[in-house]
């Protein structure tokens, strides 16, 4: 609980962050920056979880644990994704999302 700060402020903050991430996801071409956008989205979700935990259900820690697991999954996702990017770069010397279309049709 923070004085004068209601839960909706947290939720709005995370919503804005979420859509900033979405915007990044939509416009960016470089795969790494797209991944950064995705991570921003994940962080916004984490904020939501924690805020709900703190404000609405402080008696147990579900929100915190979900956030923990999200962080862990983000780590795995980032590591595998970056391994793929590096391999991709070795193959086609480029990591723009539009150039990765070998499998198209």
């Amino acid at each position: 609980m923070i004085e004068n700060i209601g839960i909706e402020k947290f939720v709005i903050l995370s919503t804005l962050m979420f859509f900033i991430g979405v915007y990044g996801f939509l416009v960016r071409k470089n795969l790494i920056t797209i991944l950064i956008s995705v991570e921003i989205i994940l962080n916004s979700v984490n904020i939501n979880f924690v805020a709900f935990n703190k404000y609405l259900y402080p008696e147990n820690l579900q929100g915190q644990f979900f956030a923990l697991f999200i962080i862990a999954i983000a780590a795995t996702e980032a590591s595998v994704a970056i391994a793929i990017f590096v391999t991709l770069y070795r193959r086609i010397k480029m990591i723009d999302v539009e150039n990765v279309n070998k499998m198209k049709y």
């Binding site: 999302v97 198209k104 049709y105």
Partner: peptide
């Protein structure tokens, strides 16, 4: 109908 699948992730996201 395969031409709907452009392979562009961002299009899907849109």
């Amino acid at each position: 109908i395969k031409y709907f699948q452009s392979g562009q992730v961002q299009q899907y996201a849109y």
